[in-house]
Simulated scan of single mutants.
Amino acid sequence: MRERDWEQRLAAFVAERRAMPFEWGRNDCCLFAADAVRAMTGDDHAIGLRVHTSAQEAARLVLARGGLRQIATDALGESVPPAMATVGDVVLLMNEGRELLAVCNGGTAIAPGERGMVALGMDAALAAWKV
């Protein structure tokens, strides 16, 4: 459940991560989404996921856990249609032929990119999870 001041917590998290580049095991899509949830709720759903330091290790971890969709479902419960996502919810997007987890920011979803946070269109969302 979100804390009463979740909006301020999410805003502080976004400000902190705005210029932080993508980094496996620290600021990749899965940990970015989990850290945003932790900022809003105080719950860390990434326990056991902070063990990779490369794309290859991350791919093995995601495969072993059943994929990004299953990782999000295990942490947050059943998914909802992307149209039901609101600010702060976790979304699964397709971007450049790959799935990634992001955080709904209204009409866009935010995720870590090569040079800092990027905004992606919600029209690429495949699923969402209410936080």
Score class of each variant (00 low, 15 high):
L10H: 09
G67N: 05
G48S: 04
G77H: 01
N105I: 13
V87D: 02
N95I: 14
W129L: 07
P112Y: 04
F22V: 10
A36W: 00
Q56K: 03
G116R: 02
V90M: 00
Q56H: 03
A34R: 00
P21A: 07
R98M: 07
A33T: 12
A12E: 11
K130F: 04
R60W: 08
V118W: 04
G88E: 00
M122Y: 08
P112R: 01
W129F: 13
N105D: 15
E99H: 11
V118I: 15
L61Y: 06
G88N: 01
V14N: 02
V80P: 02
A58D: 01
G48K: 03
A58P: 03
W6V: 12
G88H: 00
A119L: 14
L92W: 05
G121N: 06
E7C: 09
R65V: 10
Q70L: 14
P21R: 04
A119I: 10
E99A: 10
E23G: 15
D43C: 12
L68W: 01
G113V: 08
L101P: 06
D43I: 14
V62K: 00
R115Y: 10
S79W: 06
N27T: 11
F22R: 02
G25P: 09
A111M: 11
G107P: 09
A12V: 12
R115T: 14
V118M: 13
A33D: 08
N105F: 13
D28A: 05
G77R: 02
A58R: 02
E3R: 15
A124T: 13
M84E: 12
L10P: 14
A124Y: 08
A119W: 11
D35K: 06
L68Q: 00
A125V: 13
G121L: 07
P82E: 05
G116V: 10
A128Y: 02
L61C: 08
A83V: 14
G48N: 05
R18W: 15
R60E: 12
A109C: 11
V62W: 02
M84C: 13
F32E: 02
L49Y: 11
G48W: 08
E7I: 13
D89E: 04
K130E: 07
L101C: 07
E57F: 04
V51P: 02
A64V: 04
A36Y: 01
C30F: 14
A85W: 03
A127Y: 03
G25L: 13
M40C: 07
D5F: 15
P81V: 10
V90W: 01
T86L: 05
M1C: 07
K130Y: 05
R50H: 07
H52V: 10
P21C: 10
C29F: 11
G121P: 09
A109T: 08
E16N: 05
I110F: 08
A111L: 12
E57S: 07
V131M: 04
A11K: 09
F13N: 01
V90K: 01
L31W: 02
N27I: 12
G107K: 08
